[in-house]
Design a protein around this nucleic acid. Structure first.
Lengths: 333, 333
DNA sequence: CTGAAAGCGCTTACAG
DNA sequence: CTGAAAGCGCTTACAG
C-alpha cells in the first residue's frame, strides 16, 4: 500500500480510501491510485485491515464437524458455506472424529485465528471451556448435538420423536420383537434415539427385551457383526431399527449375508444416497442436515451482528420415508 | 498482551517470548507471565503475529473444490485437511459449482486473506490470472483438472487409460455396441474419458458410432433421460460406459425403469458408496481421491516451504473393480 | 476532499 | 536473560 501511495503520489490514507471505495475521493486521484495499484499488482491485506478495524471482525467463522468427508457432516458444511458466503464470510473447517481433545485443540486454534464465531458439532462432554470465549465476544452455536455445561444456541434433530415414529411404524406393521442397534452411548443423540425406541415400545405395551438391544456400534463393521450375532441367536427380532447411517449399511450387509433382507423389516435413522435403489429399498427416518446447517449459520451470523438474546434450542423435525424395507411384515409362526 | 505484561510486571517482549515458548526466559518470569495470562484469559492473536513475522506465512491454505458436499470433493478435502493439520496448517475451503466466476472471486478472497497456498479443482478455462499470485509467492497446486494457460503442479486421475481399460473390459466380454454417457465437454477430464473410450474401440477395430454417444450430461436426471432415450431407440447398445458418478446413478435408474439392469452391461467411472450392495453390484473404474488430495497437499506444503523446482504433473492410476454389472454378456441375436 | 500521526497486537533487530 | 524502539499493513481520529 505504501508503494502504491508513493507511485501515485498520494498519501497512504488516500490509497486506503480508494481500496475501501469510500466516495469522498476526487475521481482523478482514484484513477491514479487504481493505475498504480494495477502496476504494482497490489493486493489488499484483509488480515492487516481486520487487525486495525474497530470491530475486530475477521469475516471468518469456524466449523467443527465429525468428518468433512461424511455425507451428513458435508451437507451441514455446504449449507453453512452458502449462508456465510452470501455475506462474504469464509469458513475454516475441521474434522473431530469423535475426539474431545481434537475439539479443544481445534477450537483453540480457531480462536487464535480470531474467527468471529464457531459452529460446533461437538465430540466432547464438557463445553464450559467455551464460556470465556463467549464472554470475550466469540459467538458459538452447536449443531447436531447440544452443548454440555454451557449455555449456547443449538440446532438438533428430533432424535427422540423421530425414532419413536419409526418404531411405531414397525409396531403398526405387526412387529413385536424389534431390535435396536445404536451408536456410542456417550453421544447424546444416540441416547435420545434409544429413548425414543424404548418409549415407543412402552406406549404400545410391548415389554422391553435387553437381548434385542446393542449399543456402542461406531463403525459399519461393528454394526454388521452385532447384527449378524443378533439375528443368528435364539429368538431373533423380526424387525430392526438402526440408529445411524453406517449402522444401517452394516445391518444391510448382515441381512444380505443371511439372505434375510426380504424377511426382516428394517428402518434406519438418517437418509442416505441410493437407499431407494437397494432391494428392498430402505425405509428411513430422515434428518434434514441442510436445514440444520442453514439455521445454525443464520443463528451464528445474527449473534455475531448483535449478541444479547438468550440462547435458544431449535429442534428440527425428522421425516419418515417409506420405501419398502420398513413395511415387511413379521413372519407367521 | 500488553495487559499481561503490565500485570506480570515484565516487558511486552518477555510475554511474547513466553507465549512462543522461547527457552531463554527465567523460570520465575515464565511462571509470573503464565499466571497473568491465565487471569486475564489472554488469547494470543495469530493474525497479528503473522503480520509481523518475517516470512509473512499465515499457516492457512485455501482449497477450492466443486462442492464440499459431493463425496468425491469431500474425500479430497479430508485428505488435504489431514496433511495440513499434521503441520498445524488450517484449511479455508469453498465450493465452485462449475462456475468460473466463483473460482475467480473465491481465489481473490483467499489471496486477500493471505493464504500461503491454494489447491484448486478448477471450474474455469483460463488460469493465467494466477500467474501474478504465483510470482508474489503464493503456491498453487491443481487437483482433478490441470491448469490452463498457467504452469503449476497438478494431480489428476488417469482419465484416458482408466476409461480405456473399462471399455476394453466390456469389449473382452463380447460387447461391440457400447454406449458412452459423458459429462460437460467443457471439462477437460470429461474429454479425456471420451478419448479413452474412443481409443479403446479403435484399437479393437470397432467402428465408432456417434449414435451411441451422449455428452454434456451434468446431472443425474439428465443422465437418466439420455440413457432412457438411448436404450429405447433403434439398435440400442448392449453395454454402457458412464463417465462419472452421478451419470452412473442416473443410468441405473433408467435401466431399472426398463428392467434391463440384468441384461445391459454397465461400467461407471468413479467408485461410489453402496455400489457393492446394488443388484447387480456395479463394476467401476475407481479413482483414488484420498491419494489425490494427500499428494496435492504434500506438493503444496513443499512448494510453500521452498519454491523453485519446475511444476510437475502427477497422474494417479485408476483401478477397475469388477462387481457384476460390467461382466454381463451381450444377448445373442 | 486530503493527509500526518498514532495505534491494532504482535515480532524483529538491537542494546544492555 | 531482559527490554526499549521500530515496524508489519492497515485504519482511526484528527486537523486542515
Amino acid at each position: 500500500m505504501r508503494d502504491v501511495a508513493a507511485l501515485a503520489g498520494v498519501s497512504l490514507k488516500t490509497v486506503s480510501r480508494v481500496v475501501n471505495e469510500e466516495p469522498t475521493v476526487a475521481v482523478e486521484l482514484v484513477a491514479r491510485v487504481r493505475l498504480a495499484a494495477e502496476r504494482l499488482n497490489y493486493q489488499p491485506n484483509l488480515t492487516a485491515s481486520n487487525l486495525r478495524r474497530g470491530d475486530g471482525k475477521s469475516a471468518t467463522i469456524g466449523l467443527l464437524v465429525q468428518d468433512v468427508s461424511n455425507p451428513y457432516s458435508a451437507a451441514i458444511y455446504r449449507a453453512v458455506e452458502d449462508v456465510a458466503g452470501s455475506v462474504s464470510v469464509s469458513v475454516l473447517a475441521g474434522s473431530l472424529d469423535e475426539d474431545p481433545d481434537r475439539e479443544r485443540e481445534m477450537t483453540a486454534d480457531l480462536i487464535a485465528r480470531r474467527v468471529d464465531g464457531l459452529i460446533i458439532a461437538p465430540a466432547g462432554q464438557d463445553h464450559s471451556y467455551l464460556q470465556l470465549e463467549q464472554r470475550s465476544g466469540t459467538a458459538v452455536v452447536f449443531v447436531d448435538r447440544p452443548p454440555v455445561l454451557l449455555a449456547a444456541d443449538s440446532v438438533v434433530a428430533d432424535n427422540h420423536d423421530g425414532t419413536a415414529a419409526g418404531v411405531r411404524h414397525l409396531l403398526g406393521h405387526g412387529h413385536r420383537r424389534i431390535g435396536f442397534l445404536g451408536d456410542l452411548s456417550s453421544i447424546r443423540s444416540a441416547l435420545e434415539r434409544y429413548e425414543g425406541y424404548a418409549e415407543a415400545l412402552r406406549t404400545a405395551g410391548v415389554p422391553p427385551d435387553p437381548g434385542l438391544v446393542r449399543h456402542d456400534l461406531h463403525s459399519e463393521e461393528m454394526a454388521r457383526a452385532a447384527c449378524l450375532e443378533l439375528l443368528t441367536g435364539p429368538n431373533p427380532p423380526s424387525a430392526l431399527f438402526t440408529a445411524q447411517n453406517r449402522i444401517t449399511v452394516g445391518a444391510i450387509h448382515a441381512l444380505r449375508t443371511l439372505r434375510r433382507e426380504r424377511s426382516t423389516a428394517l428402518i434406519g435413522f438418517d437418509d442416505f444416497e441410493l437407499a431407494d435403489l437397494l432391494q428392498p429399498a430402505v425405509t428411513v427416518v430422515a434428518q434434514d442436515p441442510v436445514a440444520m446447517g442453514k439455521l445454525s449459520a443464520e443463528l451464528l451470523l445474527k449473534r455475531i451482528a448483535s449478541r444479547g438474546s438468550a440462547p435458544a434450542r431449535y429442534v428440527i423435525p425428522t421425516r419418515l420415508i417409506t420405501r419398502g424395507s420398513g413395511e415387511i411384515p413379521p413372519r407367521r409362526r
